[in-house]
Amino acid sequence: MKKPIIGILILLIIGCKGENRTDIENKASNDSDSIMGKEISLDELLDAETVELNLQEANKLAKLPLACINVEYPNKLGQTLGSEKDLKSPQALHPAFYGCFDWHSSVHAHWSLVKLLKQFPKLENAQEIKDKLEASLSKENIQAEIAYFNTEHNEDYERTYGWAWLLKLAEELETWDTDMGSELSENIKPLTNLIVARFTEFLPKLNYPIRVGEHTNTAFALSFAYDYAIVSKNDDFRVLIEKRAKDFYLKDDNCPLTWEPSGFDFLSPCLEEVDLMSKTLPKAAFALWMEDFMPELKNINFDLSPGVVSDRKDGKLVHLDGLNFSRGWVFYGLATRYPEKYGHLRKLADKHVAYSFPNLVGDGYEGGHWLGSFALYALKESKIRN
């Protein structure tokens, strides 16, 4: 049961959020070789070096989305048919995001290309990437995507996982300080606004969070949406997400991490909640909340084995590689924001990323169409931010 005094302190700290939030928190809070392509045993992972993204590895990662964003089949549409008139090809239905097996994977494949091009302008395939991005994210294609979301039977299409990745793509474009970044950001703005509106309509009606390790996980969606709200300076959206995060998770304690992972997880229900609350709570309030939610993470000897994949040709079982990357980005984030308490988690993040990163090379379509994005996001979070 939540300790009354800690609960009161958290509420008091949260109540102080505003212009003086930083002051309140301060007072209350006293190119190396890559392992890509090599086989690494679990025993060796404890000594594994941090996977670093250099130009050579960026070129390899770029090949994964490049190989799928224009691949129409196989395809999992996930649509609701209103009549036989809705039976159309993936490209006809989704001219912007028809490749990479499903809509959300296509969206985060586009995010990967933007992210890599921003970080490494001299990629081997830089011009090809630019051409594909401009072709996909044209105003006409985005309008067609909007029309699909506005059909009678698909207003909740891709709720909320695909919505979250669309906002992550929008965030990446909005922070790309180039003419192309500005152009593409403006092109997708109408779809971005629609997704924000859908989130804004849906969240007040969601009485209970969805606590699973797959697409519908509420904490994951809110975490990505929150990032976009901050970058876009959308205060109304930010406040709504902060409110729902507290409504859903503030009273949680003793998260059963030993129950994880489930067989098909690519997200950790416990850790995604940690990630969200570390962003939306003031630092002092988050520290108090963690004392009840997952106090074991402070232990410098805390350990967690990576999820083991038994068959990478199975599209569901390979989800566990994604779990290792998503665990990694949460651990990296904690180690960066709270180095004094959680700095030791950086090594644990390295271990998870090191287990799955080699499997991106020569991967089958089951994982290749999406895992690169997860790896790239984990490596993004691994960089220590000042």
Score class of each variant (00 low, 15 high):
77 L>Y: 00
361 V>E: 10
171 E>D: 13
354 A>H: 04
239 V>E: 15
230 I>S: 00
372 G>Y: 01
114 V>H: 01
9 L>H: 08
300 I>V: 14
334 L>E: 05
225 A>S: 15
163 W>E: 02
369 H>I: 06
176 W>G: 00
226 Y>R: 12
311 D>I: 07
42 L>M: 13
275 D>L: 15
384 I>N: 01
353 V>P: 00
229 A>K: 04
276 L>D: 02
267 L>H: 05
100 C>Y: 02
26 N>W: 00
85 K>V: 04
50 T>K: 15
358 P>F: 02
63 K>E: 15
256 P>H: 10
218 T>G: 08
54 N>H: 14
339 P>I: 13
93 L>Q: 13
12 L>M: 11
285 A>H: 01
367 G>A: 05
73 Y>C: 04
287 A>D: 10
138 S>G: 06
161 Y>A: 08
235 D>I: 08
90 P>G: 09
161 Y>W: 13
51 V>T: 09
290 M>A: 10
241 I>T: 11
212 V>P: 01
289 W>H: 08
377 Y>P: 00
25 E>W: 03
298 K>V: 10
195 I>Y: 00
162 G>S: 09
64 L>V: 06
245 A>C: 10
122 K>V: 07
218 T>F: 06
168 K>P: 00
45 L>E: 08
233 K>H: 13
268 S>T: 06
195 I>Q: 03
101 F>L: 06
140 E>S: 12
136 S>I: 04
169 L>H: 06
224 F>R: 10
121 P>W: 11
2 K>Q: 11
84 E>F: 11
361 V>K: 12
368 G>I: 02
268 S>D: 07
234 N>V: 10
380 K>S: 09
321 D>I: 04
241 I>A: 09
165 W>G: 02
278 S>P: 05
75 N>M: 01
54 N>T: 13
299 N>K: 14
134 E>G: 04
60 K>T: 09
80 T>H: 12
162 G>P: 01
